[in-house]
Amino acid sequence: MTDLLDGEAPSGYQELLGYRLSRWEEGLAEMELPLTAAHLNRAGVVHGGVLMSLLDTVSGFSVTFCPVEGRLRRAMTLSLSTSFLGQARDGTLVATGRLRGGGRKIVGAAAEIRHRETGALLATSEGMFKYRPGSENREGIER
Rank of each mutant, 00 (worst) to 15 (best):
N41F: 06
L54N: 12
V45Y: 11
L54W: 10
P10G: 08
F61H: 14
L85W: 09
K105E: 00
K130A: 15
L93M: 11
E8I: 15
V107L: 05
E69T: 15
G103Q: 09
E15W: 01
L40Y: 09
L4P: 05
C66F: 00
T2E: 15
L5G: 02
E117T: 13
E30D: 07
S125L: 09
R138Y: 02
L80T: 12
P133T: 14
G91L: 02
R89E: 15
W24S: 08
L17Q: 03
H115A: 09
F65P: 13
A38W: 04
T92K: 01
L54M: 15
G134C: 10
G12K: 01
G70T: 04
D6Q: 11
R138K: 12
V46E: 13
E26L: 03
G102A: 07
G7L: 08
E15H: 08
L55K: 09
I113R: 04
L121Q: 08
L21P: 03
G108Y: 09
R132Y: 05
Q87W: 01
R73V: 02
R138P: 03
A38I: 08
M52K: 07
T82M: 01
V58S: 06
E136W: 05
R100W: 06
L5N: 12
T64I: 04
V46K: 02
A123C: 10
E32T: 14
E26C: 08
P133D: 14
A38R: 14
E30A: 09
V107N: 05
S22F: 00
V107C: 06
G7K: 11
L35Y: 11
Q87L: 08
M76G: 15
R114G: 12
